[in-house]
Every structure is written in C-alpha cells, then in structure tokens.
Simulated assay, not measured.
Amino acid sequence: MIPIKACQEIDKMQGGGQILAKIMAELAAMVSAGVTTKELDEKAGDLIRSFGAASAFKGYHGYPADACISVNEEVVHGIPGRRRLKEGDIVSIDIGIKHDGFFLDMAQTFPVGRIDTMRRRLIETAKGALEEAIKVFKHGNRLVDISRVVQVHVETRGFSVVRDFVGHGIGRALHEEPQIPNYVTKGESPLLETGMVFAIEPMINAGSWEVKVLDDGWTAVTKDKQPSAHFEHTVALTDKGPVVLTQ
C-alpha cells in the first residue's frame, strides 16, 4: 500500500521542505576548490540543528554523517571525509531531515569551478530528467510513467540510468512504499493518486549503469570510474497537480 497524506500533512511536509531547500542553498554556496567533504557535512549538521530539525541520515542503519557527499565517480552515499574538492570535479550533495514529524529528502549535483563539457551535459541531463519526471507525476498516469520518462530522457542523450538504487515514497518514514525505479520494469504499475508523496531521484552515469559498493559499506561508485550525477526532490501529488516540497 502506498501511504496517502492529508492536506494538513502535506502542508507540514512543505514547511520542512522549505527548510531543507534553504540548507541546500547554503551548502551550494560553499562548494569550491579546496573545501573538504567533511567541512560540507559539518555545515549541513549545523544548519539542520539551527532550524530545529533532525538529520534523517545520521545513524540510519549506522550511517555516520549528516549528509551523503559523492564526488565524480561516486554515485550515492559517499561518506564525508578528508577528500578535498578540486577544480573540474562534480559533487553530489544528498541531505534529508525530519521536521514536525515528517521526513524530507533532496539532492543536487554541483560543478566545482570550471568543468568539462561532458560533465556539464551529465548534470544538465540528470536535472532535466527530474524535471520531466515531476511533470508526469499526475492523475491518470501510473508509476511506470515516471520511470519511463527518466529512462528515455537520459538514454537518448547518451548516458545511463543506475539500476541498483531507486527513488521512494516518503513521509512519516524516510523510505515508504513505493520504490520508484528510474527505468521501466515489468509487472503491474499502480495508479498515481492525490496525497502520494514521492522522493523522485534520477541517478545517472556517464558510462555504464553498473555500480559497486566500496569496503566502507556505503559509498557506491561506477564500475568504470566514469562520473555520475544525482538530483532529487520530495514531491506531493495534490488536486492541482505535482507540488515540489523541497524548494
């Protein structure tokens, strides 16, 4: 069963989403050559607490940080540490909070200074895939329509869609039903209904879709060491259509 939220619950989630968007904007302003991923994480933790929220990630199944920060070939769940950003890198920041009883989740990928054309196209394609997915999160469509539009948008531009990690429902728990693949799968697909709230998150690679998890048990990297990009918003389906809560 996919949980359905009442209007009042979505309003509460939107309040938390606006906080999360402000936190992401502060972190985006920090992204520059010389900054360590640990410094970004420490800033994220300070900001989360300053807004009276709690980190959704720290301690989740033992995850050790407030944010997931993934650089270049790191796809998702990168553990912050001593790695120092350098000119030409791309860095994905994935943060989640719990506020007023509800979870919010978002991610963005940023250039570090000047980046090459391929990396810029990769970021633009991942961002565009999320925008297209949000457009089809509407009445009369099915969950698979979100998956299809992401896959088509990405693959027609010469990139690949990660199979091992997917989007998800979100609300009173960080991960709720349904799972939201970024590629078409077989089987019956549920109809989209008012009150559904999804964390839609295309993760795409410059090369092969295949990934592996490092020995730290968290950091997922591309098997071919090609760069990866990740964008995510928490989105509610209302009577008026999709509403992005994390903006």
Rank of each mutant, 00 (worst) to 15 (best):
A126G: 15
L143A: 11
R121Y: 09
K135T: 10
F137D: 02
I115Y: 07
E155P: 01
Q151H: 08
D145E: 15
R148H: 12
I115P: 03
G158A: 04
L122P: 02
V136P: 08
T117V: 12
H153N: 10
G158H: 00
E132M: 12
D116K: 10
G158C: 01
E124W: 01
E132A: 15
R114H: 08
R157P: 00
I123A: 03
N141I: 10
R157E: 00
S147A: 15
K135R: 14
V154G: 02
E131C: 10
V144F: 10
S147W: 13
I134N: 06
E131N: 15
G113I: 06
G140A: 05
I134T: 06
V144Y: 11
V152A: 05
R119T: 03
A129L: 07
F137K: 04
R148V: 07
G113E: 08
T117Q: 13
V154A: 00
R119Y: 04
E124K: 10
E155L: 00
I123D: 03
G128F: 02
G128P: 07
I123Y: 02
E124P: 05
G113P: 08
N141V: 10
V144H: 11
V149E: 04
K138A: 13
E131K: 15
E124L: 13
V136K: 08
V154W: 02
R120G: 11
V149Q: 07
P111Q: 06
R157M: 03
R157F: 00
V112T: 14
R157N: 05
E132K: 15
H153C: 07
T156Y: 00
G128S: 06
A133G: 01
A133I: 01
R142C: 14
L122V: 02
V149C: 09
V154T: 01
G113C: 06
I123H: 04
I115W: 08
G113W: 07
L130P: 03
R148Q: 12
V112M: 13
R119E: 02
F137H: 07
V150A: 06
R148P: 08
R120D: 11
G128V: 02
R119W: 04
I146Y: 07
R157V: 02
G140C: 06
P111G: 05
G113Y: 07
A129W: 01
E132F: 09
G113K: 06
D116C: 14
G140H: 05
N141F: 13
T156N: 06
A129H: 00
I146W: 13
I123M: 12
D116E: 14
E155C: 01
D145T: 11
R120K: 13
R114N: 12
T156R: 03
H153P: 00
D116W: 10
N141A: 12
V154Y: 01
R120P: 02
N141M: 14
E131L: 15
L122K: 04
V149P: 07
V154F: 00
K135L: 09
T125V: 08
H153I: 00
V150L: 06
A129K: 03
M118L: 13
N141Q: 14
E132S: 14
N141Y: 13
T117I: 11
V150G: 03
R120Y: 09
F137I: 03
R121C: 10
K135V: 11
L143M: 15
S147G: 13
L143C: 09
G113Q: 09
T156A: 01
R148K: 14
Q151I: 08
L122G: 02
